[in-house]
Design a binder for these strands. Structure first.
Length: 330
DNA sequence: CTAGGATCCTGTCAGC
DNA sequence: TGCTGACAGGATCCTA
């Protein structure tokens, strides 16, 4: 499920491949996945690739732009004469023969083809005048990028959504842009906050910690390439899960917490599958944050908090570690 | 106004 | 083996 780091990986990966290149022809499949006029793209040259939240914006030299949203299962796959690149929702399409049944738009360039694939048709490519991109209803309503947001600003927004579970607030793109289900879970684990905690009950310190977690986890994911072909297809040709590179809780239910060894569990919060360490993220522990800590000293859930200073926190637990669990290596 | 549920869509997988 | 239903979850729409 492409979130901010995945879209940023798409942007960075595609930029050297299609910037200043001419789109000879756009071939959209009929349906909602393509909005606007394909002929506005034909013959245009790409002059910029931008990202806002989870949206990718491709600017063309004819004052038109393409607003691309991958939603849940979208992918952008480049097949060039001299290069290949794929990113977005990891799937067999990264290496499959294209176009296929999931191809929604095909862009013919002079030296390659770009495929917009989307299994579930939730994503879209929208062609509109460049000057109208900022006024697009989705773009205009987006909150700030995590790294542009101050902790107290997020705290104020939490107060505004005081009765909503913090996870729902984090997923709200109007509050903060780019966080999806994966990074919401990871950020909350980082901050040792239970996802069902009402946003208004969080201390300013906890909100700051959540924001710090979001920035760190997403940055680490961007640095490792997000869900690109390179992270999905292992060097030996087998398919792995890019989440293994950084996920502490997401989709790790049944496995043990890397901090305390407790079994990760899955629950449903805000209508989403949600993964937590029940020991590190205790519900209600937020109601008495500081004074209880001071009184009782190191409680069990406090030990999980040990990585306040990122010093002892290794970026990537790679190197043939135990994180590689269900992946068949045969 | 907010919170929460249904909706869109298709492929996968568990269970019968 | 083959069918059915639950599930995946980003954003929007609708309801209370």
């Amino acid at each position: 499920m492409p979130e901010l780091p995945e879209v940023e990986s798409v942007r960075r990966g595609l930029e050297p491949l299609i910037l200043k290149k001419k789109i000879i022809r756009a071939k959209p499949e009929p349906g909602k996945c393509f909005q606007g006029e394909a002929r506005d793209i034909d013959g245009a040259t790409v002059v910029g690739l931008r990202r806002r939240g989870k949206a990718l914006i491709v600017d063309l030299d004819n004052r038109k732009s393409m607003l691309i949203h991958l939603r849940m299962t979208g992918q952008l796959i480049w097949r060039g004469d001299h290069s290949n690149f794929a990113a977005g929702h990891p799937s067999k399409n990264f290496t499959a023969e294209l176009p296929n049944s999931q191809t929604r738009v095909e862009f013919d360039f002079e030296d390659g083809k770009l495929f917009f694939n989307d299994q579930r048709k939730f994503g879209f490519v929208k062609v509109l005048p460049t000057e109208e991109v900022e006024q697009d209803s989705f773009i205009a309503s987006l909150g700030k990028e995590p790294w542009d947001m101050q902790a107290d600003e997020l705290y104020q927004k939490c107060q505004r959504h005081a009765r909503a579970p913090i996870k729902a607030v984090l997923l709200d793109q109007k509050v903060i842009a780019g966080i999806g289900n994966i990074y919401a879970d990871e950020s909350l684990f980082y901050a040792s906050v239970h996802p069902e905690t009402r946003a208004g009950e969080l201390s300013a310190l906890q909100v700051a910690k959540i924001l710090e977690g979001a920035c760190k986890v997403m940055q680490a994911s961007i640095d490792s390439g997000g869900s690109t072909m390179a992270t999905y297809i292992k060097p030996d040709g087998s398919t792995g899960n890019y989440l293994e590179l950084f996920a502490q809780v997401f989709r790790r239910d049944g496995e043990t917490c890397k901090r305390c060894g407790t079994e990760i569990i899955k629950l449903r919060v805000a209508g989403r599958g949600t993964h937590i360490c029940p020991a590190c993220q205790k519900q209600g522990s937020v109601n008495k944050p500081l004074n209880q800590e001071r009184k009782t000293g190191m409680k069990s859930n406090r030990t999980c908090n040990a990585n306040t200073s990122s010093k002892n926190r290794k970026q990537q637990p790679d190197g043939g570690n135990s994180a590689i669990k269900g992946v068949k290596s045969d």
